[in-house]
Structure formats: structure tokens, C-alpha cells
Design a binder for these strands. Structure first.
Lengths: 148, 148
DNA sequence: TATTGTTATACTCTATAACTATA
DNA sequence: TATAGTTATAGAGTATAACAATA
């Protein structure tokens, strides 16, 4: 699939940019993600929401939107996506009846466990050319970049 | 803007994934790119095309599409974007009159030089929390990831 | 017949804004 | 009046397919 780097061409200043390297690595990851989890409609973005719901049961949709950097409309649609599959449910808030708490369903928990395995495998595959030590280094350096 | 990481929430398994870290760093870069170059319609993707044309004058559109992982239609539109600004031109091929060679115009060269400066600054800003040595390490490790 | 590039069309993902229901 | 969520709509950016020109 997607050409990530073709040595036959000159990339000009691009190889001197860390942003370009980050983008290529990220696209490379993205390109294999859907196949790795066995369903191309499951994107890293959608998977992230499921993970965050799992780790923080009962969040409001607007909070999920904030965490993921989405509009509330987009968050709503992402929740729809998982709800249609029976993995997430909206529970009417008891104190504040305008809002919902978002929860994994029982089958959502099972499905997520299976997804986590495959995502883990995919991630291991992504970084297979790195030693354990190099992997730890990479993660530390990446965190320094975005955790300003 | 965009929340990249909010310590108030639990990110579940996500922080254990290198792919997730790559994505966050890349989005963080992307988020500031348009403002850094002073024009939000200039995306990393569009900038990349301009760079590659500059470094490989005369490529066919289909080659640019290949390098950037785009359809030929998308490459055509990206070239349109720059051509409308007077930065790129299509020159009819002399041997093969079906195709064009893509070239920077004179004002394109000037504009690119200015863009390169700003992109460079943006990239420096992106990685300002890393020492020279750490930056070199990061680049080496990233290359290992996507240059399988 | 095959290939380069353009155009038409459609799809996905996103945001904004208008709306409903609660507060 | 303000807020949580939904829905309508529109705008990017992408791909595929049909097309024109040329090989």
C-alpha cells in the first residue's frame, strides 16, 4: 500500500523535519490499523473513544468530545457507531437528566478485550524493528514532544 | 486548542501504544502548522508536494501522486491549488504529450523559500523540549519505524 | 489498447448552527 | 437563559469511474 518512502526520489527539505517523520510514521500505523483489527471501519479515533469509555465509565458525551478534541456532534456520531454494534450504551443521568453517562455493554467489554489484543499485536508489529530499549526511548521522546 | 493529553482522565491502554503516541505527536504538529506558515489552507500534505516538486523538477503528476500516496485526481487538485497561486506550472511534455512536467515558477521559488523558513521554525518549536542529542535519537528511531 | 490527466460524482469525516429537553 | 445532546447542513479531502487526448 501507501508509499511511505521511495529512495528513488529526492524529498528536499522534508527529511529534515521531525513533523514530517512523525506524520509518515503515524500514517504507516494508520494504514495497517483497520486490517489488523479485522474491520476497516474501526479507526484509531473510534477505538480511542471505546478505550476511554472503558477506562472512565459514565463520562458525559461532551467530556468525551473534549478529551478526543471533537465537536459534540462528532462525539455523538462516534458513540452511535459503537451503540449500533451493541458495544456502548447511553444511560440517562440521574441528577442531570439532560445528559447521558456512556458505558460499555457486556458484549462491548468482550469485544474490546479482543480488540485490545489485536491492537496490541499491531503495535508490536509496528515497532518490531526496535529493541526494547529503543522502544522505551522512542516513547519517552515522543512524550516530550506532545506533553510540552 | 486541541487537547493532546489531559491528566484528569484515564486513557486506559492507549498510553501503552506507540501508534497512539505517534498520532498525538503528529496531530500536535499538524495543529500548529497552518498558523506557523501564516495560512491555514497550507497543509503539510500540500507543502510536501511543493517541496517534492522543488527537489525533483519536471515530475509527472502520476509520479507525484505515487510519492505522496494520493490518487491521480487528488494530485491534480493539489497542483491546481498551487497553480492558482502562481507557484507551480504545468509544462506540456515534449516526448510524451499526454503528460505534464510540473515545475516551480519564479514566484513559487521565492514563496517556497519563505515557507521553508517558517516550517523550519515551526519544526524547531515542535521539538524545543529535546536536546540536540535527543532530537537526533528521535529521528533515528522514527526512521526505523517507517523505513521497515 | 493502454496511459496521462481532467472532470463528475460520491463517500467519509468534520464543524457550525438550529433544535429539543432539561436545568 | 444556559447547557447536553441530536439533527440538518455544508465544507474539506479523498477515491472511483467516465472521459479526452495521446501513445
Amino acid at each position: 500500500m501507501a508509499t511511505v518512502f521511495d529512495p528513488a526520489f529526492n524529498y528536499g527539505q522534508l527529511p529534515s523535519l521531525t513533523g514530517f517523520a512523525l506524520r509518515r510514521a503515524s500514517l504507516w500505523d494508520f494504514a495497517g490499523f483497520g486490517d489488523a483489527v479485522g474491520d476497516r471501519s474501526i479507526t484509531p479515533q473510534r477505538y480511542s473513544l471505546l478505550e476511554i469509555v472503558s477506562a472512565n465509565p459514565g463520562l458525559q458525551q461532551i467530556q468525551l468530545a473534549d478529551i478526543l478534541g471533537l465537536s459534540k456532534a462528532a462525539a455523538s456520531l462516534t458513540i452511535d457507531f459503537w451503540q449500533k454494534r451493541g458495544y456502548l450504551e447511553r444511560r440517562k443521568g440521574e441528577q442531570d437528566r439532560r445528559s447521558f453517562g456512556i458505558y460499555l455493554t457486556k458484549s462491548g467489554k468482550t469485544a474490546l478485550a479482543r480488540l485490545q489484543e489485536r491492537v496490541q499485536q499491531h503495535d508490536t508489529e509496528l515497532t518490531k524493528s526496535l529493541s526494547k530499549d529503543e522502544l522505551r526511548q522512542l516513547r519517552t521522546l515522543l512524550e516530550k514532544v506532545y506533553r510540552h
